[in-house]
Design a protein around this nucleic acid. Sequence first.
DNA 1: AGGCAATCTAGTCAATGTAAAGATCGATCT
DNA 2: AGATCGATCTTTACATTGACTAGATTGCCT
Lengths: 192, 192
Amino acid sequence: MTDDDRPYHHGNLRRAVLDAALDVIAAQGPGAVSLRDLARRAGVSHAAPAHHFKDRAGLLTAVAAEGNALLAESLEAAADLEDLGVRYVRFALAHPAHFQVMYQPHLLHPDAPDLAAARDRVDRTLRAAIAALPDSDRGPDPERARLAAWSAAHGFATLALSGSLDASLAGHDDPAEVFRSFTHLMFNSAAR
Amino acid sequence: MTDDDRPYHHGNLRRAVLDAALDVIAAQGPGAVSLRDLARRAGVSHAAPAHHFKDRAGLLTAVAAEGNALLAESLEAAADLEDLGVRYVRFALAHPAHFQVMYQPHLLHPDAPDLAAARDRVDRTLRAAIAALPDSDRGPDPERARLAAWSAAHGFATLALSGSLDASLAGHDDPAEVFRSFTHLMFNSAAR
DNA sequence: AGGCAATCTAGTCAATGTAAAGATCGATCT
DNA sequence: AGATCGATCTTTACATTGACTAGATTGCCT
């Protein structure tokens, strides 16, 4: 018994809620996400999203899984490790909402199969890029090189998103290129 | 008109609430912090914490400020840049609750003077450590070296706290030493 | 045409954040 | 010592939220 013309079924509520969630997260952080608010934005009843995501954590898990999938897609197209690092940073800055949720386990359902699968994809891509390094650059311990590369990219991305680098990045138009400017140096030596 | 022996004034409610908050954050993340729950743990009425911290954000801002102060204290005792990086990682792992909150602007009051002051202290310490590098290691652009060093330490700490490195760190008893093992390599080259 | 599963609505309950107004205490001043 | 003032805490109240349940609606499949 609805007064308006709105059809009973939304059509693509899952995507609509996800998109609304991404807006809220990008603007106000994951803590500001309210299932009821997202329902209002999508023009459905307050309990409708629950059927698609079960939980608040379920919604954020879906965001994290989508984020990892998007990230994997970009990284898989990387030319080499440096390019992969730059792509990692670029992804974080282009998809801040996804990125913010991906590495906060407390917000997520620990063992969601699709999330784990997407993470594996990212992981394999990084390992492949390390393995593809020329011998002169890879160094004796690939695992160590992997941690170094991931830490550098992840740290830069995280700090940039948190605003901690605002002063340092003020002049530059593309923060990812700032990252490239020193990652290039670091990995001639991580190799040694 | 309270039935129990509990005195009207707690004595040190501010500290009690902060400590309870740190427990909750470390165990369940900042999202699980409830002012009412902390009040219950401290044995006071549910509105008592508000007088000390104003907001939920006010409480977390106090946590972040305290965290930065503790971090600054540790970093100021660092022998050199490598030691400073290891101390950064060690702090994050020893004070996960503080660290988790420090870099999430959405949880905090943007312009809290004490927080800004504590952050400045950390910032100055890092710049000093960069400046104290031998010429052969510092390289042409100190700012670039600063971003590289901070990114590496911050990324490793963040990834470790999020559990992303659990598999890689399984064998080692001190993750901070794993970090040292590759930061040492990186900065011979960031210098070049 | 009939039935079935997916999708959505409506109603409800406990928990939370936040605000306002009053009670209690302790320190300081005279 | 006694009064006063500010800080600390309690009580009450209200709007919002997450989560659960039962029921309504729809599209699809056979």
